[in-house]
Design a protein around this nucleic acid. Structure first.
Length: 420
DNA sequence: TAAAATGATTGCAC
DNA sequence: GTGCAATCATTTTA
């Protein structure tokens, strides 16, 4: 389409719209001493458009020079408000409306993920409970109930607080910069709206564009913060490798539970919680311990190292009888009394095996004074085991006693894994 | 100091 | 989500 055709089209458009904006012009026209006739108005509009079209064909310098000279004339022209209004309307109906539909996007899922993570880690959102609880959760597992866990905890918390502070400072800077720039641009556009048609929607759109650009910076900031938290967390969690053995008392409590529930050594959640409380360790550590215990018990049964009556003696279940190894060694409590009684009784009896399988012999208890009282037996409403859903799988590992097998105190000498 | 013991992690299956 | 099995990493023991 050449310039002439474009000009004709614009002129016809303007003529068509002229009627629609007459209302807007009404107030203005009322102020005029004489209202021009229709042919006159069309001629004037044609002149203005002709000037505009001519400018597009000129070089920048020529146009500027011409514009400066004609600026005052155009600004003072009585048709200027009407023309601005028409141009603004056209802009809104074409470019702006198309862009608006394109810009109405749903919230960025990546940004949402970052936001959620920062809130979960206690960096964003309210500080109270955020950082400290996240740190507490992370340290609970790391410390394993050890006293120096508190040191690690405070260390983690301090570093997290640092990250949080940097994040908030940067976020504040970003918001301030964003607001300042937005205000500046809005003022600039308002200023320019005196000399060129700028619709309010156009200003809104510009503000949206600026916000979008700044949100990219915000995203970067959030991403960097998340990375910093992740690095801190991974370093902190690595500290879990620096483990400490549980206290003797804790191991004893766990062993007591394990061997008193040997037929089904799967503590319920409640039992785990109770054990965790007694041992001053976490529930997950209890789960780890029982997981390790079951598997190592099975292995040793399988290799025969723990086999009742095996030449090596020292089966782990038997340890409950011979009380050797697995932290049962050298105890000076009721366990030792039991050990003594067993050694006095001349070795293995079916009853003692029953006790190892979770069926404590009342006679033995009476004799020794030892009871697994720390953990109430199954079905008593105390620390109970899980339902026997594992019993089928586990059953093969419950010691099956042969009447010929004899456990002698000499087996005490061998730790279960000494078979290696 | 090597070997054993032990708590934790990971990958897989259910 | 839980448990198993293998493995890692550290601590304890002889």
């Amino acid at each position: 389409m050449d310039d002439q055709q474009r000009l004709m089209q614009i002129q016809s458009n303007v003529a068509a719209m002229n009627n629609s904006v007459m209302g807007q012009q009404q107030g203005y026209e009322n102020m005029q001493p004489t209202a021009p006739t229709d042919p006159d108005r069309k001629q004037e509009i044609g002149d203005i458009l002709q000037q505009i079209m001519t400018i597009t064909d000129q070089s920048l310098d020529e146009a500027q020079a011409r514009w400066v000279s004609g600026k005052h004339t155009l600004n003072c022209h009585r048709m200027k408000p009407a023309l601005f209004s028409v141009l603004c309307e056209i802009k809104e109906k074409t470019v702006l409306s198309i862009r608006n539909t394109q810009e109405e996007e749903p919230p960025d899922p990546q940004l949402m993920r970052l936001d959620n993570m920062l809130i979960a880690e206690g960096v964003a959102g309210p500080e109270k409970g955020g950082g400290s609880s996240a740190a507490a959760n992370a340290t609970a597992a790391a410390s394993g109930g050890q006293p120096d866990g508190a040191i690690e905890h405070s260390d983690y918390r301090a570093k997290l607080a640092q990250i949080r502070q940097i994040y908030h400072t940067e976020l504040e800077k970003y918001e301030q910069a964003c607001n300042e720039f937005t205000t500046h641009v809005v003022n600039l556009l308002r200023e320019q709206s005196r000399t060129r048609p700028i619709a309010p929607k156009e200003i809104e759109r510009m503000v949206g564009i600026i916000r979008k650009k700044f949100s990219a910076i915000e995203m970067q900031l959030k991403q960097s913060t998340c990375e910093a938290v992740m690095i801190l967390r991974s370093r902190f969690l690595d500290a879990r490798r620096k483990r400490r053995n549980f206290s003797k008392q804790a191991t004893e409590v766990l062993n007591e539970y394990f061997y008193s529930h040997l037929s089904n050594p799967y503590p319920s959640e409640e039992a785990k919680e109770e054990l965790a409380r007694k041992c001053s360790i976490t529930v997950s550590q209890i789960s780890n311990w029982f997981g390790n215990k079951r598997i190592r018990y099975k292995k040793n049964i399988g290799t025969g190292g723990y086999g009742i009556g095996s030449s090596q003696g020292g089966m782990e279940a038997g340890m409950y009888m011979n009380l050797n190894g697995d932290n049962y060694q050298g105890g000076d409590n009721s366990v030792n009394a039991l050990r003594h009684v067993i050694s006095q009784s001349g070795g293995y009896t079916p009853d003692s095996v029953a006790s190892s399988a979770g069926m404590f012999d009342p006679h033995l208890q009476q004799m020794t004074g030892y009871r697994p009282v720390v953990i109430p037996p199954p079905g008593t409403g105390g620390l109970d085991v899980e339902e026997d859903k594992h019993e089928e799988n586990w059953a093969g590992y419950i010691p099956q006693m042969n009447q010929d097998d004899e456990y002698s105190d000499s087996n005490d000498e061998d730790s279960p894994n000494k078979t290696k």
